[in-house]
Each structure stands twice: as C-alpha cells, then as structure tokens.
C-alpha cells in the first residue's frame, strides 16, 4: 500500500496546482463583483483547445502557441465582462451567476462546432512519448511535462502574490475589492481594474487548462469539472482570498487523490468526493478556513 504514496502525493500536487490556477481567477472576480463566474472553467477549456489548434493545426512552435493561447483567452475574458457582465454589475449577484451558466454553455457549443464533441489530445500518433524520470525504485514516475506543469504553476502563483502585494496596480486591485466606491474617490479607474481582474484570471485559467491538457484528454466539458473543483477550493479556503484558494486547492487535490488511492471508493466518484468535502465544510465552517467572519462583517 505504502509504496504508491510518493506517486499519490505527486498526483495530488499536480491536481492542486491546476485547481489553484483556476480558483484564483474565480476568487478575484468574486472579491470585486461578488458573484461566482460559472463560465470561468470554460476559460481553461478554451485555452486548452486554442493551444491544440495552434500546435496541431497551425504547427506553431510550442512557446508561441502557448503565449497566443493565453493572451487570446485573456482578451476573451475582458470582452465577455465588457459585453455581458458589466451590464448587470449593479443587479443582485444571482443575475450574473445565471448568465455565467449561459455563457459557459455557449462557449462549450462554439468549441463543439469547431473541434467536434469528441475526446482529443495534444499527443498525435507518431509523437514521441514523454520523457520520464523514476525515483524510489520506480515507485514514483514523473514526466518532463509534469515537472513543467508544477514549475509554471509555482512561478505564476509567486508572481501573482508579489504583484498583488507590491505593485501599484496590485494594491489598487485589493483596494477596489475592499470598497469600490471609496476606490473611485481616490481616482482609481474601477472599470479598468475589473478588466484587469478578468484578463488576469482568464489567462491563469487558460494556462491551467493547457497544462492539464498535457496530462489528460481534452473534452468540451472539461471546464465544468475544473470549475467545480476550483469552486470547492475557494469555498474551502474562504472566498475572495487568494491564499485561501491555494489552501483550499491543496486540500481538495490531496483529499480526492488520497481517498481514491487508499479507499475502495472508485475514481468515478471524484466529483462526489469534492462535493462531500464541500458540504461538510459548509456545515462546519461556512466562511472557509481563511474567510472573514461574515457575521462580524455585517455587525460592523
């Protein structure tokens, strides 16, 4: 039993890294606009498919295809906000939430129209298999792509944390999340800030989608499952908090992989496990591990 432990830990880390990349965008948008964007997972899906198109159909070199894909998705995120979510910014958060479900379905439909509804993959017949490295007498096998995945996620999250903490724009993002009206009084352009949030969050999700696309097959509905995990991560960690998203993603990533590896629960129950953790959390600590005490906030 124990000999598979290193491998399970490694897979848990990979899952956590992907969930974090997607959850931070979700949590940043929630921090400012107070709605859960159900189309956010679609940014990962569209990113993954764009990379496929650039790599396989257009035969672009990897780095060019990678950059083009996440830039395109960042623009997509900004355009969706300007065109759709901005119109309902002052409504009850329920409205943008429902609209985001519609946007999600729309993006899936567009991808199905272009790429077909089936399963596809970056690995085409004739491609060389990934380079692998073995540790612990072969009990831990990791591929070069997985190392890249962890490294990219790690660097991006550190960069995001530094950006939010130290840059002027990062500080203004946090100020807008705290209080839009007062931020506007300081001369901060709130519309521009929200565009930055959508662009940044969408780009990170797209990168998450492209990285997971190298591990699994692509399907037009992959964004939904990713968003469910990211959503659970941020509820767990506390909404509107980037570090909470990271903590939540680690808990979700580790617990689902450990439960599937070490209990008789089959892998097809993956989503069920996530929801079970989520429901448990909502009962025990509804504000999340790092979340502010909502009651105290209301009383202020």
């Amino acid at each position: 039993m124990l000999e598979i432990l290193p491998q399970v830990i490694w897979y848990s880390l990979i899952a956590s890294a992907i969930y974090t990349l997607i959850a931070v965008g979700l949590t940043l948008v929630f921090g400012i606009l107070e709605f859960i964007n159900f189309a956010h997972g679609e940014m990962a899906m569209v990113g993954a498919y764009l990379l496929l198109a650039f790599l396989v159909n257009f035969k672009f070199p990897f780095w060019l295809a990678f950059i083009l894909s996440f830039v395109a998705v960042a623009i997509l995120g900004i355009v969706l906000e300007k065109l759709i979510f901005k119109k309902v910014r002052k409504s009850h958060p329920f409205k943008p939430l429902v609209i985001s479900i519609g946007v999600s379905a729309l993006l899936q439909a567009v991808v199905i129209l272009i790429f077909g509804g089936g399963v596809t993959s970056y690995l085409q017949t004739g491609d060389q298999p990934a380079q692998t490295f073995e540790f612990f007498n072969g009990n831990l096998v990791i591929t070069d792509h997985q190392i890249l995945l962890i490294a990219v996620a790690f660097v991006l999250l550190i960069a995001l944390a530094l950006f939010l903490k130290f840059s002027k724009t990062g500080k203004s993002l946090r100020a807008v999340a705290d209080n839009k009206e007062v931020a506007a009084i300081m001369g901060i352009n709130v519309d521009r800030t929200i565009s930055i949030i959508f662009g940044l969050g969408s780009a990170l999700a797209a990168i998450g989608g492209m990285l997971i696309g190298g591990e699994q097959n692509l399907t037009p509905t992959m964004g939904l499952a990713l968003n469910v995990h990211a959503f659970a991560a941020l509820i767990l960690g506390g909404v509107g908090n980037v570090y909470g998203a990271l903590l939540g993603a680690l808990i979700i990533g580790f617990s689902e992989n450990f439960i599937i590896a070490f209990t008789p629960i089959p892998p097809s129950f993956r989503e069920a496990i996530v929801f079970a953790i989520l429901i448990l959390m909502l009962i025990v600590k509804p504000n999340g591990l790092l979340g502010a005490n909502a009651e105290a906030e209301v009383r202020k």
Binding site: K168, R174, D178, A183, M186, I188
Partner: peptide, 18 residues
C-alpha cells in the same frame, strides 16, 4: 472608509494613486 484589508501605509499610498 479605509480599505480594511490594506495596511495603513497601503491605504495612504492609495490616496496618492493618481
């Protein structure tokens, strides 16, 4: 009207945002 999750210094810096 302070930004609660910003430090005192970050709040002051926002006053000079422009």
């Amino acid at each position: 009207s302070v930004f609660p999750s910003l430090t005192v210094e970050e709040n002051l810096e926002m006053g000079a945002f422009i």
